[in-house]
Nucleic acid binder design. Structure first.
Length: 329
DNA sequence: GGCCACAAGTACAGTCGGGT
DNA sequence: ACCCGACTGTACTTGTGGCC
């Protein structure tokens, strides 16, 4: 499993900015992230607001390398990035890709980050991407049904050799989640390791979803499928692992409308660290939640100033223990 | 202990806008 | 122009805590 030191640094940066009162519990999540992580972002989904609202020019370092704007633009165009894309909001997964570091064997760091902001106490639904503990850029492209994210990331990383290794490198996923943003006495903010939401593999989750639809029909019609038929179905449904192919609208012969399946996921309270299942996470707190298996990393980072942070442990019903670094207002 | 009011959770549909 | 994902809004259902 790759190093999470960059995500830890991001968290420390966010806490420091809270301390300096540069941000508060109701600041935009993007402002919190962008203000704490300069120079390590190699894909940013909302380049428009970053520049317009948070004084963060995603392309600044690229432009610095060229004598003038048009030279930079020519280079970007050669990488498949049009002028129109520079400061747009692409609405793709993820919100942010962090820079991967090279090791002698391959890569480390380079995590993916997705933000979820909700007025109520439930985590905003996952619209198109089922949450997982890790994904490669290749998988990201499949989810998005295009290669915009990997194109921009690759341009930033200046990958020339070993692209396929870079492309299939498994990056850890983190979720920056706020709940109750409308009520500051209840607000909770957490940077959460993706494994918290992945208790069974996505492929299995999709297969079981369709199986459950079939079973619901069995019950509704009170017609039983045989065990053999169900087993056969299960093995067929195991093919359905490509989210993009499921959710794209379907051209059906002779039909004048195109059915469009939307795979959305809503977080069960047991999988929501901000729910009553986890009283260790109080209102008005900012948390970093990561698996116990990363504890050795924490010890390595112990020299970093942690004096304002409380350290506790929560137990996920299915995934075991998670360490929580916590700042409470 | 049961009822009620409100909060939390669930399940959708509708809208908007970016990318191709 | 078309395709599709993110975001928004809301109605309905379930859970909970206070009160009689």
């Amino acid at each position: 499993m790759s190093d999470i030191s960059d995500i830890f640094e991001l968290f420390v940066g966010i806490i420091n900015n809270f301390h300096r009162a540069e941000i508060s519990l109701d600041s935009p999540l993007e402002k919190m992230i962008l203000g704490a992580s300069t120079g390590k972002i190699v894909y940013l989904d909302n380049r428009r607001d970053a520049k317009g609202k948070y004084e963060f020019d995603f392309w600044r370092d690229i432009f610095k390398k060229f004598a003038n704007y048009s030279e930079a633009l020519d280079w970007l165009k050669s990488k498949g990035i049009s002028e129109k894309m520079l400061y747009s909001k692409s609405d793709q997964f993820p919100d942010i890709v962090f820079k991967a570091k090279r090791t002698n064997g391959g890569f480390t760091c380079g995590s993916l980050l997705e933000m979820k902001d909700a007025k109520g106490s439930a985590i905003a639904s996952f619209n198109s991407t089922l949450p997982t503990k890790s994904k490669s850029l290749k998988e990201v492209d499949i989810i998005n049904g295009g290669n915009l994210v990997s194109r921009i990331t690759a341009a930033f990383e200046e990958v020339i050799t070993d692209f396929s290794e870079f492309y299939s490198y498994q990056r850890r996923c983190f979720y920056f989640v706020r709940t109750n943003k409308a009520n500051l006495s209840k607000t909770k903010i957490s940077l959460i390791d993706g494994s918290f939401f992945e208790t069974i593999p996505t492929k299995e989750l999709i297969a079981k979803t369709f199986l459950s639809i079939i079973q619901a029909h069995q019950e509704a019609k009170s017609e039983k499928l045989s065990d053999d038929e169900l087993k056969h179905l299960e093995s067929i449904l195991a093919f359905l692992d490509n989210h993009n192919l499921i959710s794209s609208s379907k051209h059906i012969d002779k039909a004048s409308v195109k059915p469009r399946l939307r795979l959305m996921a809503e977080v069960h309270p047991e999988g929501n660290p901000h729910s009553r299942f986890y009283p260790e996470i109080p209102a008005r707190s900012v948390n970093f939640i990561f698996p116990e298996s990363d504890f050795s990393f924490l010890q390595k980072e112990a020299q970093i100033n942690l004096k304002n942070l409380k350290q506790t442990i929560i137990t996920h019903k299915r995934n075991g223990k998670y360490i929580v670094l916590q700042y409470v207002f």
